[in-house]
Each structure stands twice: as C-alpha cells, then as structure tokens.
C-alpha cells in the first residue's frame, strides 16, 4: 500500500488551490502568513529534527530574506521583480547562512544555540544601528513587486495577496515542501540523522560530520530566508524585530507546537501559531500570558506537539483495533 503521505500532501495542495473561493480575504492573508512561517519552520526543523542542532538565532536568517527584498526595493527599484527578488533573497540567505553556519557548527548542544543567538544579535544590532542603510528600527516598507511582467501598481495589498500572489506562494510552498521531503529522505538526509543519533559512529563510517552539519545549516538557512522573503510581501513592512532572539524563540515554539518529530509538524505549528497569536492579541491585552501559558502546558504535557499527539492517538486507535480483531 502507498504511504498516506503520497496522497495527503497533494490533497492538501488541491484544497489550498480552492481556498480563495472558500474563505474570506482576511483569513486568506493569515493563512499566507502562516505558510511563509511554515516554510521557515520546515527549514529550522532540518537542523533540529534531522541534524540534532537547536538554533536560537534563526530569526536572523529569516530577516536576511525579508531585508534582501526590502533593500532591493530601496536601492534597485528597477529590479523589483519577484522573479529577481526571490533568487536575490536566496543568494543573500546562502551567503549569510554559510558564514553563520561555518561559525556555529564548531559547537553542538547549548553552545551551538548560544552561538546562533549571539550571531543573530550581531545582525539585529547592525540592522537597528545602521539607520541610514536599513531604516533602523523603523524598518523598510515593502512595495508590491512586479510579477512575471505584470505590474500591480495602485492595487490594494489585500487584493494582490488574495489574487496572483496567493497562487505563487502556494506553488513555492508545494515545491519547497517537496524538495525538503526529498532532502530528508535522501542519502544526505540519512547521513544527517546518523550524525544526530551518534556523532562518533557517523565519523567512523566516513561521514564528515562538521561538513555535513554545515551543509544542513546552509540548506536550513535557504528555506528560512525564502520564508522571510515571501513573508515580507504578506506583511508589507520589515523591521529588525524579526532578527531579535524573541522571534527566534517563537520559531522554536512554532516547530514544537506542531511537533518536530513529524515531517509536516512544523508547518502545522506555524499556521496554528499565527492564528493563536492573532486571536490572543485580539481578545486580550494579556496575549503574552496566553502564549506563554500554552507554551508551558505544551512542554509539560504534550512535548511531541499537536501533530505528534495526534499521531500517537492514531497509533493507539490502530493498535486497539488490531488487538480487537485478533
């Protein structure tokens, strides 16, 4: 029998294609924001789940993607076309994550996390302090890009987001999910997992541990930067806050909320988190309390996340049935 993953994911994709007809624009924008976070969380999880490295500085890589778009709009308005912007954002993420990764993979465990945090704060401080170059804490406004020759000038952002951009976004989302799925199931992905499980053995069978960790970091940074670039259009504005460690903490939270031991968990977590944060903000001024409390409850009671919890539930039901028929 085919694995459920081969028809569940295409099914979700088809559902997403029809979503603009099913939900109001406002909901659609939330989902778009969630999807961009999902791409980011997927990248983050390549490090956490598959390589065993917890980065507490991924916000910086997200910011690189978003700021690449913002800076292009500011300094090269002629090239403000989405088919140029996305590769530029990827290139910028590639460079920065190659540098960050090169430094970070010198350590593992808590030192890796601290190092990633410190590096992300370097970038954050630069973004805040270099006011003339980056707009400082005011950030940069993101205009609507030209998409494949079509200009959206004069269009309202929500129209742009619920029209052409939505389909562009879910196509990128589908492609990147597919690529990530291929990566984690490739020999390279297996090698990463062997490093995570036992570093010494991996070294013994000839895997160049540090090199592979570095590759994983770069790939992870590419996905995260892509998420940031796509998110910048949805949000319409980029500020240095996304490079700060608080946002990096939220990335960890999203991933664990969905369940990092399951491939799709981070995506589910990212979308859920977007909704949860928005509703918490709209119903109470104590939204941080709500988020914090859910976080504490999650870690204490459901450490495998929502998706992980469901997976366990299904396994339990299946086992119960099997036991019943036998």
């Amino acid at each position: 029998m085919m694995k459920p993953i081969y028809f569940v994911y295409p099914g979700i994709f088809v559902l997403l294609l029809f979503l603009p007809r099913l939900v109001p624009t406002y909901q659609l924008m939330l989902i778009e924001s969630g999807i961009t976070f999902g791409i980011m969380a997927m990248g983050f999880n390549l490090l956490l789940r598959y390589t065993g490295l917890l980065s507490f500085g991924h916000g910086a890589l997200f910011a690189v993607g978003a700021y690449a778009v913002g800076m292009m709009g500011r300094y090269f308005p002629d090239l403000y076309r989405i088919e140029i912007l996305i590769p530029v954002a990827l290139l910028a993420s590639l460079i920065v994550s190659a540098i960050f990764g090169f430094i970070c993979v010198r350590h593992t465990r808590i030192f890796f996390s601290i190092l990633a945090l410190a590096l992300s704060m370097v970038l954050y401080a630069v973004l805040v302090k270099l006011y003339d170059l980056t707009g400082g804490s005011d950030g940069i406004h993101i205009d609507l890009p030209i998409m494949f020759g079509k200009s959206f000038e004069g269009m309202k952002r929500f129209e742009f987001l619920s029209g052409a951009y939505y389909y562009f976004l879910i196509c990128i989302f589908a492609v990147s999910t597919g690529i990530m799925f291929a990566i984690v199931n490739s020999p390279f992905g297996r090698a990463l997992q062997s490093i995570r499980d036992n570093e010494v053995r991996a070294e013994m069978i000839g895997i160049r541990v540090r090199r592979y960790r570095w590759y994983a970091f770069i790939l992870s940074g590419l996905f995260t930067g892509l998420g940031g670039a796509l998110w910048s259009f949805v949000n319409g504005h980029v500020t240095p806050e996304i490079a700060e460690w608080i946002f990096s903490g939220e990335i960890v939270y999203m991933t664990l909320l969905g369940g990092f031991m399951i491939f799709g968990g981070p995506i589910i977590g990212a979308i859920l988190f977007t909704y949860m944060k928005l509703y918490a903000v709209s119903i109470t001024q104590y939204w941080m309390f709500v988020i914090g409390a859910t976080l504490v409850i999650l870690v204490l009671l459901l450490p495998e996340g929502i998706a992980g919890g469901f997976a366990r539930l299904f396994a339990w039901i299946k086992r119960g049935k099997a036991a019943g028929t036998a």
Partner: peptide
C-alpha cells in the same frame, strides 16, 4: 515549571524558560 525539565532535552529547557518569560512579562502588566 523548571523542576520537571532537568531530564528533558535542551530545546524543552530553553522553551520553558521562554514561556516563563512571556508569562512573567504579562503578570507584571496584570
């Protein structure tokens, strides 16, 4: 909340103190 965390993996330890940070910030506001 910290006590049950000593045997847990690093990501949970960091995350629980992150949750505590959010909780206390809003408790102060309350």
């Amino acid at each position: 909340i910290i006590r049950p965390m000593y045997r847990q993996a690093l990501e949970y330890q960091l995350l629980i103190t992150f949750g505590a940070l959010l909780l206390i910030e809003d408790l102060i506001k309350m």
